[in-house]
Design a protein around this nucleic acid. Structure first.
Length: 740
RNA sequence: GCGUCCUUAGCUCAGUGGUAGAGCGCUUCAUUCACAUUGAAGAGGUCAUAGGUUCGAUCCCUAUAGGACGCACCA
């Protein structure tokens, strides 16, 4: 063995060795007789990284954790499949490319036109994809690349369109004119989950529409009051009881408005004056109130955030500017009763950070409170709403979320869930499979026959296609989920063999975006849960606990770490000390520390190899036989070594079964360094130096066995170095498919 | 407002109902020895605070303080 462990040479060579072996593909394992086709299946689908650039430490952590589960399952003899893929990430990718083009060429997407722009986005996505694939392999992830998927490829497009059509036919997808979250910066609608609240100071103004109006109201957005069609008070508020039901005409800064006084539970008595001006067109809450009280809707702001109300003071002005003008006008008219500074949470778009302008728009929605009949699977025939299905999937313990505390968070989210707006006014993504011709509307997988059909120009929320991921990657809708194909090899039988997935592993930050949506799609379309377990990992932060970001300059790049200290060390640094669901603070020192572990392991192997007795170096088969014979005849100390490591194996298996990877890795680390190296080898050193030939051979045999056992247990965590050392002691064998 | 998590060695964090652990850092010593990307020894902790349960609490319960976060509201 080389005296120095050459990380980069070994990791590159082993990566290629695995890839050439084809053993990441379960069908190859079956063909070669390594895996029993009727063995228990174990399937994980990789959360597809966005094609917006490169992998970061969060991805590396995800890959490490999943690879541990997958390699462990494979070594246990399970029929193991881990499917790779990437996500087109519609809005994220589009806005990234838009930004780049604007910076480099000073053009926006409309200057280029839809086709040319999409060409550019696709080129960028392809480049990102290639980088991501390279990086993923570099981390040692044992993914079956022959089954690689992309959320925007042809096969997934069929899945998306099929899902859309089915849900439309079930009455779960509808097109409705509703007040939606409009992002004026990104020029698109977004869903409730894509909103990020930012705390800001605002001026709360208490005023009357005009001198004759009986009730004063409070608002931070006086410019929207042109659109008011009601004033709402709480039903139990004695101050306003007498007014409820009356209607008034008022002159608001020169514009005639008609206002009805209503009572509604949504009003808080203690806020402001306890009376609220209802602006149905520019507030989701107000819009809901308007629905309840049958109020008219008056739009006064457009998609660009400009005032459309025909009032000479503000027409054509930006909302913020109009706010100042209206405030000034109210002052002039002596209508303001109070002005106070308050802090409020402003809704902004997650991607663009533009301030959300609620607007009434015609959009596509998924209705979450409508009862429908499930058509397939285990849940066939049940009449439930999507909300109920999502809830019972977890409440009935069919889907187990780890750590458990996230189940409460999940339920809490479902309770507050509104209809999901799925249409986006961006270009990159799955175009909505709806075509119109005059009054006619067609929903289908393929464009309708005949002239004059126009496809809806909008695209779908990226999470719509991600929601199908657990089964769209397994061949749905082309292959059947059940029937005779179970147990048979080949990707065409994947759905029968690997659905539901065994585990879904992802970050806790996308439990709503993604985990919930997959449960929704799967229970609805498949009539079955998408996966049995959800394992949520924490976020990787810098050593001060801050998010890693370009602007802070605190990014630790997983590939740089892998090149410097090895993918093995990088993986270990992300596993040890990382309790499930807890954030990990990472520093380069940590990675370096685990690189030292690789060196230690290498030297342990080197020491053992150097002490190999000449007699047993004849052939590997003989050496195995010899080792076993020696071990059987071993001394008490030697027996203790072997029972100890057997006990350790029990412990490690237990931890792995319980998803306690951090405990398993920590114990192995401790055993190898502080027990095996520091105690056992130090003890045996003497015998190997001055013992009889017999003693030497026995000592060697025991050490070799301990080493091989350690390598096996370590393999899921540090696959490269363990594979390399294993080959030195067992030429021709592949550790990744050895039996656990 | 509702809820969750965190508070353990100088730093970053694991962990456990019964003499406290890791990495990095620090001190001293060792080195023709598998490994200086090392070994040995060591310093350093009333496990946030106050109550309670218990034979026994860092761990379970309650409250308090500080920090992080999620959800709802935010007129």
């Amino acid at each position: 063995m080389e005296s120095r462990y050459d990380i980069n040479e070994v990791e590159a060579r082993i990566e290629k060795l695995w890839e050439d072996s084809g053993l990441f593909d379960p069908d190859v394992c079956i063909e070669k007789g390594i895996t029993d086709p009727h063995a228990e299946p174990f399937c994980v689908v990789l959360p597809p990284p966005n094609v917006t650039g490169t992998l970061h430490m969060g991805h590396a952590a995800m890959l490490a954790i999943e690879d541990i589960m997958v390699r462990y399952a494979r070594m246990q003899g399970k029929r193991t499949l881990w499917i790779p893929g990437t996500d087109h990430a519609a809005i994220a990718t589009q806005s990234k490319v838009e930004k780049d083009i604007l910076k480099k060429e000073g053009k926006n997407r409309h200057d280029l036109g839809r086709e040319e722009f999409l060409k550019r986005v696709r080129a960028f996505a392809q480049e990102s994809h290639d980088t991501i694939v390279r990086q993923t392999k570099r981390m040692g992830a044992s993914l079956d690349w022959s089954r690689e998927a992309y959320t925007l490829d042809k096969q997934r497009e069929v899945a998306v369109r099929t899902a859309f059509k089915k849900m439309y036919d079930m009455g779960l997808i509808y097109c409705g004119n509703r007040v939606v979250n409009w992002d004026p910066k990104g020029q698109t609608t977004i869903s409730d989950d894509e909103i990020v609240y930012e705390e800001r100071k605002a001026k709360l103004i208490t005023f009357r529409y005009d001198k004759n109006f009986p009730i004063a109201i409070s608002t931070t957005r006086v410019e929207t009051k042109f659109g008011d069609t009601a004033v709402a008070v709480h039903p139990n508020d004695p101050r306003y009881e007498e007014f409820v039901g009356r209607e008034y005409d008022a002159d608001f800064c020169g514009t005639k408005i008609h206002v009805k006084i209503i009572s509604d539970e949504a009003v808080e008595k203690d806020f402001g004056t306890g009376a609220l001006g209802v602006t149905p067109a520019h507030s989701i809450i107000d819009w809901e109130m308007a629905q309840r009280h049958d109020l008219p809707l008056k739009q006064i702001i457009d998609e660009h955030g400009k005032m459309t109300i025909k009032n000479e003071l503000v027409f054509g002005k930006k909302a913020a500017e109009a706010r100042e003008i209206v405030t000034e006008e109210l002052r002039k008219r002596g209508l303001i009763e109070k002005e106070e500074e308050i802090s409020q949470n402003v809704a902004t778009a997650e991607r663009t950070r533009g301030i959300i302008e609620p607007l009434p728009k015609l959009q596509w929605f998924i209705e979450v409170n409508r009862k429908f009949k499930v058509e397939n699977g285990r849940l066939k025939g049940q009449e439930k709403t999507l909300k109920e299905l999502m809830k019972s999937a977890v409440a009935d313990d069919n889907v187990k979320i780890l750590p458990e505390r996230f189940e409460r968070i999940y339920f809490n989210w479902i309770d507050n869930l509104r209809d999901w707006c799925i249409s986006r006014q961006i270009w990159f993504g799955h175009q909505i499979p709806v075509w119109t011709k005059g009054e006619e509307l067609y929903v289908g997988i393929e464009a309708p026959q005949g002239e004059g059909w126009i496809q809806d120009p909008d695209t779908l929320d990226t999470w719509f296609s991600s929601g199908l991921w657990p089964f769209s990657t397994l061949g749905w809708p082309h292959s059947a989920p059940d029937g005779a194909s179970r147990g048979k090899p080949g990707p065409e039988n994947d759905l029968a063999n690997y659905f539901p997935n065994s585990v879904l592993e992802t970050g806790y930050d996308i439990i709503f975006f993604w985990v919930a949506r997959m449960i929704l799609m799967s229970t609805c379309l498949m009539g079955e849960i998408p996966f049995r377990k959800v394992y949520l990992h924490g976020l990787v932060r810098d050593d001060k606990g801050r998010k890693m970001s370009k602007s802070l300059g605190n990014i630790i790049d997983p590939l740089t770490m892998a090149d410097k200290y090895g993918a093995d060390a990088t993986r270990l640094s992300l596993i040890i000390g990382a309790a499930p669901g807890n954030d990990v603070k990472l520093s380069e020192d940590r990675v370096r520390g685990y690189r030292n572990f690789s060196t230690k392991l290498w030297n342990i192997a080197r020491f053992i190899e150097m002490n190999k007795p000449a007699a047993s170096s004849v052939s590997p088969v003989d050496s195995v036989a010899l080792a076993e014979a020696r071990v059987r005849a071993s001394s008490e100390t030697h027996e203790k070594y072997l029972t100890d490591i057997a006990a350790l194996k029990q412990e490690i298996s237990g931890h792995l079964d319980n998803f306690e990877f951090h405990l398993a890795a920590d114990k192995l680390y401790h055993y190898v360094w502080h027990e095996f190296a520091d105690v056992i080898i130090e003890t045996e050193k003497e015998k190997l130096k001055s013992g009889t030939d017999e003693e030497k051979a026995e000592s060697y045999a025991v050490l070799e066995q301990l080493l091989l056992d350690s390598l096996k247990m370590l393999h899921p965590f540090v696959p490269f170095i363990t594979e390399e050392i294993y080959h030195i002691f067992r030429p021709g064998k592949m550790l990744m498919v050895e039996k656990w």
